[in-house]
């Protein structure tokens, strides 16, 4: 009888040992897989929670730490990511993995801290897409000549981003910026011509008509009524105000033209640079 009972126990024991132990979906390994899934499906807020949970319960490896930093950036919680890098000077940063360095650069660029990136480049930090970032900083600072010269004096990496940024720098370099002083000067000589020079033909024509007609009107008033009466002085004041406004308007028109043009190049640069951030 005892032998029978023993045999039954052994059978049960054996069966029990074959029972698959249930997978714990909250353990570190699964949580990491899940956090990565959330990140890859662009659910950055949820991914951040999961990575933070991981950082509390499990030992974060370098890859996970980096992923957490990326989610901070994606969720625009820059200060949290900054905290990590603040403790590292460039020498320590240089010793870190390339992905960390790339993340540092992206973090700074996302916050428009171009000066920090420039500093990193000047100190010789090695990171991916260095050419692209250097060129983009020049473009974002509207240094068209510098940007163009940079593309002429360096080897352009053969990738879409570098090629497109190079194309932007060439176009920006070749673009004709309007000179506000020239627009003002032209408006002094021929009223409205400063606006026409800046491409605002309709405005220029109206300006010309009003300034010339008010000038003529003032001239006629003085001729007819003399300088003793108030009326010619009002007409003269009107003419002077039109004329001055036309000079000021000419310079402003040139500035507006340049701003629109520059904005277009900057917008294109941002679109290309941040496309894979």
């Amino acid at each position: 009888m005892t032998r029978f009972i023993n045999t039954v126990f052994i059978v049960i024991l054996f069966s029990a040992s074959r029972l698959p132990a249930q997978e714990n979906i909250f353990d570190c390994n699964n949580s990491l897989r899940f956090a990565n899934y959330l990140y890859n499906t662009a659910q950055y807020e949820l991914a951040q929670h999961e990575f933070e949970r991981l950082s509390f319960f499990c030992n974060l490896n370098e890859e996970t730490q980096l992923a957490l930093l990326k989610t901070y950036r994606k969720n625009q919680q820059y200060s949290k990511a900054n905290q990590f890098f603040q403790t590292k000077d460039f020498t320590r940063l240089e010793q870190m993995d390339t992905d960390y360095k790339a993340e540092y650069i992206r973090l700074m660029m996302s916050q428009q801290l171009y000066g920090e990136v420039q500093k990193a480049i000047n100190t010789g930090l090695t990171f991916p897409e260095k050419f692209e970032h250097q060129l983009a900083i020049k473009l974002l600072h509207k240094n068209w000549n510098d940007a163009y010269n940079y593309t002429q004096n360096n080897n352009i990496p053969q990738n879409l981003k570098a090629n497109t940024l190079t194309d932007i720098s060439s176009r920006a370099y070749a673009s004709t910026q309007k000179k506000p002083w020239l627009a003002s000067l032209m408006s002094v000589v021929v009223p409205g011509s400063g606006k026409m020079y800046s491409g605002y033909w309709g405005d220029g024509l109206i300006s010309l008509l009003f300034t010339v007609s008010s000038g003529f009107f003032a001239y006629r008033a003085f001729n007819r009524y003399g300088s003793d009466k108030v009326y010619p002085w009002i007409a003269g004041g009107l003419a002077v105000s039109y004329y001055s406004a036309n000079i000021y308007g000419g310079a402003k028109a040139a500035q507006r033209y340049n701003e629109n043009l520059n904005h277009q190049f900057i917008h294109e640069t941002e679109r290309i640079l941040f496309s894979d951030y």
Partner: peptide, 25 residues
């Protein structure tokens, strides 16, 4: 004595399967 050892062993072996964490459902 022998039986109690067996019981102990069975309980120990089954416990991970019985004391389950949260499953997907």
């Amino acid at each position: 004595m022998k039986q109690s050892v067996f019981f102990f062993l069975i309980i120990s072996l089954l416990s991970p399967a019985v004391s389950m964490g949260q499953n997907v459902d």
